[in-house]
Computed example of a mutant assay.
Amino acid sequence: MSGRILRLVCTAVVAAQAALAPLPAAAAPEPRRPVNELLADLQKLYRKTEQATETYNATEEKLTKQRAEVKRLDGELVRARLALQESRGVAGRLARQQYQSSTDISPYVRLLLARDLQHALDERHVIGQLARERARTVGRLTSNEKRRGTLGRQARKALDAQLTLAQRQKKDRDDVRRRLARVEVMLASLTPTQLTELTRLEQNKTTDAQNKLVTSGALGSERTPSQRGIAAVRYAEDQLGKPYQWGAEGPRSYDCSGLTSQAWDYAGTPIPRTSQEQWAQLPKVPLKDLRPGDLVIYFPEATHVAMYVGNGTVVQAPRPGGRIKLSPIASNPILGAVRPDKRLS
């Protein structure tokens, strides 16, 4: 048998053996994850996204203040330069006058040779006044030069701080966008049945948490709101149905702290922009003493906030993809509550 025929036979035998070999088993489908695990993951993603949003809001607030400071310093620097220019003009005139009178007889000699001693003394008084004015002019010149230098350094430092905050704002913004993308990827991976089950499970958990809170007596009896509290609640409820938008402060959309800060600003009591600063700076109030208008802060990091409207209910901008709505107060783990207006009782 020739070598060519031998090779053909061997190839045929190998092919026959391959055809008779058992096929590899098909990859088994990934086991379906329990809905409670999916809900926990999704809530964690939402929470991290809102935390990133509040970080962005805090940086934006600092950047706004820093821009105002840069503008203020720039204005003062302009005024200081004008004052310095004016002082230099006056000093120049005095210098010319001093030069022109440098060849005159000294005032002391003129006083000794004067026929009218009183007139000479009056002249000496005028000369003294001029000398004091020259000293004041030199003092103003020195002070204005020093002030311009100080303001120049402060303006450069403030501008550097503004640029640093702008870079941090961009980083915070990109962080929010990355986290939102993860939420969208997870939601896109779920089937309609899973989404329905997730919604049902989340509602059941909220109902259970609300029942426990109410039956524990932690909320206490209803209290009468202040006039500003009424105005804040009215503003917040007027926004019902508008979309959640991270970083937004209205009027078309809001994030959680954008809604509460704008409501209280409308009521005449400006409060911090972020939920974390609202928790840190505003007076704490026990849940049993809640009244409409008070703010309920959620999660250990104080990354979510809603406004209490009474009867165990809050109005809130819930999360990305949601709309401003009324919710049970226990819709998220409660950290505590604060009261924006000063009257605590």
Rank of each mutant, 00 (worst) to 15 (best):
S345G: 15
R182Y: 11
G152F: 03
E50N: 09
V296T: 02
A236T: 00
R179W: 04
T193S: 08
A188Q: 10
A80S: 04
R179S: 10
I324N: 00
E197T: 12
D172P: 01
P286Q: 02
I324V: 08
L20Y: 13
G217V: 11
I329E: 06
E86D: 08
P333A: 10
G250P: 01
A236V: 00
R153W: 09
G217A: 09
D294W: 01
G322K: 05
A27M: 13
A337H: 00
Q98P: 10
Y244N: 00
R134A: 12
R72F: 10
L141W: 02
Q66F: 00
Q66A: 03
R88G: 02
Q129S: 12
K170M: 10
A58V: 00
R4H: 12
T215C: 09
D116K: 15
A114S: 08
D208T: 06
L23H: 09
R178M: 11
Q194V: 06
R252W: 10
Q227D: 12
R134G: 12
G293K: 01
R200M: 04
H304L: 04
R115I: 14
L201M: 02
R4E: 08
D255T: 14
D104E: 11
Q167V: 15
R7C: 09
L282M: 03
G250C: 05
T191W: 06
N311Q: 14
K146T: 11
W264D: 01
P283E: 07
R223L: 04
A68Y: 06
R93L: 13
R148V: 05
R140W: 07
R136K: 11
S331F: 11
S221C: 12
